[in-house]
Simulated scan of single mutants.
Amino acid sequence: MPEYPTALGASSLDKITLLGQDLAADVMGEVGFGELAFWLAIQRRPTPGETRVFEAVLAALADHGFTPTAITTRLTYLSAPDSVQGALAAGLLGGGSRFLGVTEDCGRFLHDALSTARGGPPTDEAGWDELALASVRSARAEGRVIPGLGHHVHKEGDPRTPRLFHIAAEEELVGPHLSLFAAIGRIHPQVLGRTLPLNGAGVCGAALADLGLPLELLRAFALLARTAGLIGQLAEEIRTPVANDIFLSVDLNNRAVPPHPADGGEASASG
């Protein structure tokens, strides 16, 4: 018979192992969920400081009001109250370049910029500012968005950003990604001609990258956090529903307009 080796969960007649531990005896009641999620992803147990930073990221990304992901989850539940899994999945599918996906996008942007630093990461603020300036100018010249800059609500500053920097500093876990992100916050007005806040999703991506977590999974951690938030949205929808009002506000206020054919010629009714 073929074998399928795994360091994750495995079961026998009377025992379940997980990450080399006895699940019932060594994990349940002994390991927090955030710590376990980190451990599962990187297959080493995080330090208390790493756990604190990681769980701060999860808290920062769990819920942020009536975002598209929350509204989608509530509306899907309105349409299919028999499918909680469908409502949660619908909300998570909206994690992309504008919401939640910025966490991964920022981590990758910072990682790519760091890879261009000759002689390794800078050692002083002037060096970080120089690297940040080069990376922002390059992105601007190529017409790319600088992920982690700007927020549709927190125009004067995202309150999550300084708090996460503070926690990482307390745990001595401010690494190159957070250092470069801070430098981008200092220098970007020179290139963009205006000052934008460093947003929470971006700083979370920088912090996760500094923890050594795989870049390919940064969005997954944002989705893990948002799952908890969407469960809260569903629980509130059950207690005090608003989804039907959201639906009716659109349905009862639609306005018929003539069709607008797409560019490329007039629409044809012929087959």
Rank of each mutant, 00 (worst) to 15 (best):
H188W: 00
L211F: 05
L218M: 07
L211G: 13
E236G: 05
G202C: 07
L173F: 06
H177Y: 11
R186H: 11
L196R: 00
Q190G: 03
A235W: 01
E171H: 07
L192H: 01
L230Y: 05
Q190K: 12
A225I: 07
L215W: 02
E172Q: 14
N199W: 02
Q233R: 03
L192W: 00
L178P: 04
G185A: 08
Q190A: 14
G175E: 06
R194P: 00
R219Y: 00
A183K: 08
G205N: 07
I184E: 13
G205L: 03
R186T: 10
V191T: 12
E216G: 10
A206V: 01
L215K: 03
A201F: 03
E172L: 08
R226K: 13
E236P: 01
A225K: 04
E236I: 03
P197N: 10
T195G: 03
L208Y: 06
H188M: 07
G202M: 07
A225W: 01
A201V: 02
V191M: 09
G232L: 03
R226I: 13
L198F: 10
F181M: 14
G232F: 02
A220G: 15
E216K: 06
A182D: 14
R219E: 15
L234H: 08
L198A: 12
E171A: 14
A207S: 11
V174S: 05
G200Q: 02
L196D: 04
A235M: 10
A235Q: 11
G229K: 05
E236M: 05
E171C: 13
L215Y: 08
H177C: 15
V174W: 00
A228T: 14
L215R: 05
F181I: 02
A182Q: 13
D210M: 05
L196Q: 03
I187K: 04
A207N: 08
A222N: 10
A235G: 01
G212L: 10
V174H: 01
L218T: 13
L211E: 11
L230N: 06
I231P: 00
A183S: 13
L198C: 11
N199I: 08
L178W: 06
R194A: 11
E236C: 04
H188C: 14
L208V: 12
E236W: 00
P189C: 10
V191P: 13
E237A: 09
T227L: 15
Q190C: 02
L211Q: 11
L196K: 00
F181G: 04
T195R: 14
N199T: 11
V203S: 04
G175Y: 02
L230D: 08
L217D: 15
D210N: 04
E172N: 15
L224C: 08
C204F: 02
G229I: 08
D210R: 02
A182R: 14
I187W: 03
G185H: 02
G205D: 09
R226Q: 10
L234W: 07
A228Q: 07
P176E: 13
P214Y: 09
C204Q: 06
C204L: 02
Q233G: 01
G232E: 01
A235E: 13
L198P: 11
L198T: 11
G202V: 07
L180M: 10
A182F: 02
L173T: 12
E172G: 05
H177T: 11
E171I: 08
F181T: 06
F181A: 09
L218R: 07
E237F: 05
Q190Y: 00
L223R: 12
L215A: 14
I231S: 05
N199L: 09
V191H: 10
P189V: 05
A209Q: 08
